[in-house]
Every structure is written in C-alpha cells, then in structure tokens.
Nucleic acid binder design. Structure first.
Length: 283
DNA sequence: TCGCAGGTGGTCG
DNA sequence: CGACCACCTGCG
C-alpha cells in the first residue's frame, strides 16, 4: 500500500485537528491514528512526535497511509493547511491577550482544514441544533445509503457524500431513514438550488441557501472557502466569549465586532482555539 | 417525562 | 428590524 511520510511537521496534532469541531468524518483508531475520507479518497493518518525531549508533542512526522505523493501534494497538503505558519499565528494572537494564551496552549496543534465545499455545506446544515454523535450518524447514513464508494481501508469500504444532483433526485421519503429530522427539507431545497445556480461563491450566495443562517454560513466560509476572518458563533462560542472577554452571552453582534477589532484577519483561527478550549474544559 | 443539542425560518410587534 | 418560538431526533 502506498504510504507518504511528511517529516518535521510543526504546530500539529491529529486530535486537535480532527476534534475542534470542523469535520465529522474522521474516526480515531485504537492505535491513535485517524481514518477518514475526504475528496473521494480514504486514508489513515498517524502522527509520530519527535523523540528528542525538547521537542513539543506538536512537532513530528505525519504518516499518511493509502496515499501517493501526487495525492499528498494535490489533496492532503492543502487539506491540512500544511503551508501555513501556525506558530506565527499563535504568537500574534497571544501577544497581548492572556486568556487567548490559555486557549492556544490547550489546542496547540489545531489547523483549519480546507474541505470540499459541497460536503461542508451539507455537514453544517445537518449540524444545526444537533449534537455531534447524531451529526456524524446522519452524515454516515447519507453517505452509505446514497453516496458512492470512495475507497477501502483495512477491509472496510468508505462512501463519499451524495452530490447535489443525486441528493436533488431524492424525496423526503427516500431520506427518512437517514434521520435528518426537519433538516431533510433544508438539504433538498439546497441541493435543488445548487443544481440550478451552481455552488455558492460568496457569503451572499451562501446565505441564500435554505438552512444556512449566519452561524452555518460562517462555518462554511471558514472551513472550505478560505475566508479566515470568519468568526462562527454558536452556543459554545457565546459561552467562552462571555467567560473570557465578559461579553453578554446573548450579544452575538458584540462578539462579531470584538473579533473583528481584536483578531482581525485571524478571527477564524482565534475562533478555533477558543472553541476547542471551552469544549475541552467541559469534557 | 422532559430538556437539550454546534440554529434557522417564520411570524409578530 | 429585533425578539420569540416551533422544530426532528435520540439521549440522559
């Protein structure tokens, strides 16, 4: 099997990357590695920390199994955002912000994935007013029932999400076993819209989709459209912004303004560190 | 049993 | 335009 090794990756940790709320399709294995699918590929990733005691556990070699060099360069390198200097981002964010220092220390290995646009739209429409195990279940059901096989790993077949055409061809009845609840209608409407008008290219087109409000739109912008100043605010972000910065939990607008003024272009990265921090604290 | 979970659309005033 | 509130579903 093809295997690709990336040496000396910095500011990286798989559990931080895959457990900071941006993706739902990576599964932790017994050996600590993660298997998952994205961009119609199935791979297994393992991160081996450097053995020198001085090295932090966020520096090491990334082993990607079921991956050619070409796939790494074309798909996984951009997907994992490996060309960006997260050390620099963390230094900037924590320079004059003590509480952010605490948050960053907690999620040192976070990276913002560059995910497929359609998959991100579907995932975050499903995510609304929902809990993570159920979100994962819905996405899994949808893929297995209506998606195409993306590949195999360790004897198991993985399926990719059905595309907009496939989804638009289905009825609410077809989708009932997926257990999407009232989000079924959102997904069908959105699939039809994308078939007619194409994938959204900016925030306005994104917000025109059914089931896409400000929070979901910001997630899509941040996780698949490279708009790194996006600052999605959900219940957890409202909590952490209230706890750390004293902004009223109901004042989402005030939080947006605060993020713009204090985090600027790095708002999305700040959001990830804060989100991971508050989730860890409540684990 | 009932509240709640990574919000949004619809409906009021 | 801002403040409510119903909403599928499954779990504790």
């Amino acid at each position: 099997m093809d295997e690709y090794i990336v040496k000396n990756v910095k500011d990286f940790r798989l559990d931080h990357v895959f457990d900071c709320g941006q993706c739902f399709r990576w599964e932790k294995q017994a050996d600590g590695s993660y298997t998952g699918t994205a961009m119609d590929r199935v791979v297994n990733m393992q991160f081996v920390c450097g053995d020198r005691a001085s090295e932090p556990e966020t520096t090491g070699d990334l082993i990607i199994k079921n991956c050619t060099e070409e796939d790494f360069l074309q798909i996984w390198k951009p997907y994992l955002d490996l060309d960006r200097d997260y050390g620099e981002i963390k230094r900037t964010l924590t320079a004059d912000d003590l509480v952010m220092g605490e948050a960053v220390a907690c999620g040192q290995g976070i990276r913002i994935l560059k995910q497929d646009l359609w998959e991100t739209i579907v995932s975050f429409i499903i995510s609304q007013n929902n809990n993570i195990p159920r979100i994962k279940g819905c996405i899994e059901n949808l893929s297995q029932m209506f998606g195409l096989p993306a590949g195999e790993y360790a004897g198991r077949t993985y399926y990719s999400l059905p595309g907009p055409q496939k989804l638009a061809s289905l009825t609410a009845e077809d989708l009932a076993p997926v257990r999407l609840g009232y989000r079924t209608r959102y997904l069908l409407e959105t699939a039809k819209m994308v078939c007619e008008k194409g994938l959204p290219e900016d925030e306005v087109q994104l917000s025109a989709l059914c089931g896409v409000g400000p929070k979901v739109a910001n997630c899509i912008l941040l996780f698949s459209m490279a708009k790194y100043d996006s600052f999605p605010i959900d219940v957890w972000m409202a909590r952490v912004m209230s706890q750390l910065y004293g902004i009223d939990e109901g004042d989402h607008k005030g939080m947006c303004t605060y993020a713009q003024e204090h985090f600027g272009q790095l708002g999305g990265f700040a959001q990830q560190y804060l989100f991971y921090y508050i989730r860890e604290k409540n684990r």
